[in-house]
Amino acid sequence: MLRAEHLSKHYRQGEATITALADFTYDFPPGATAVVGPSGSGKTTLLNLLAGFDRPSAGSVELAAAKLETLDEDGRADVRLRHAGFVFQSWNLLPTLTALENVSFPLLLAGVGRSERNQRALALLEKMGLAARADHRPNQLSGGEQQRVAIARALALEPAVLFADEPTGNLDSAAGAQVLDLLLEHASGERRLVLVTHDLQIAARAQRVLHLRDGRLTKIEEL
């Protein structure tokens, strides 16, 4: 489950108060939900709050039956580890680890034993078509390959919710399409994908699109 109620985020800048997100309420249904809006519309702030990266100024977020605003930093980290996966625009792989080790990192945090970790991570890399690149470091992989490793890492603990922030932003169109297919493939059954993008063509591949403007939810579009 992923639900936001009356979610707001304000920042103080000198004497002024800036509202990055105002009174956002939405119960994310299973499947893919795209969040679109121009720069500064509050997309990133929304994702930060939904994922528990940041605390809201008001309102609440319920992720996998956990009320994030009631949890401390470590509590929110635990919820993320067990129930959420992340794919960022700039891949954010750990540079000193191989592709296989990057994918098995969440499994390490979850306390999964070494052989099972390696087995599961390798299976995910195979699914991403990257088994042959398992021992490569991020700087030895192309952008598309790095993003597929990032997706494999996000899926390592089979999360209920996958957050993707401009996942194709740094990729060419072929690699972008491949990454998008892999993300949408995951958003089946009870699983949810929250896809933040400014590209309406990509958003059109989701089942619904939330339009944000000036920190407010202005339109919900079912496709």
Partner: peptide, 16 residues
């Protein structure tokens, strides 16, 4: 700094 941010985002506790 970014690496630590990624680790925390994935679910690493502060203690880790």
């Amino acid at each position: 700094t970014r690496e630590f941010g990624v680790m925390r985002a994935i679910g690493a506790r502060r203690r880790f």
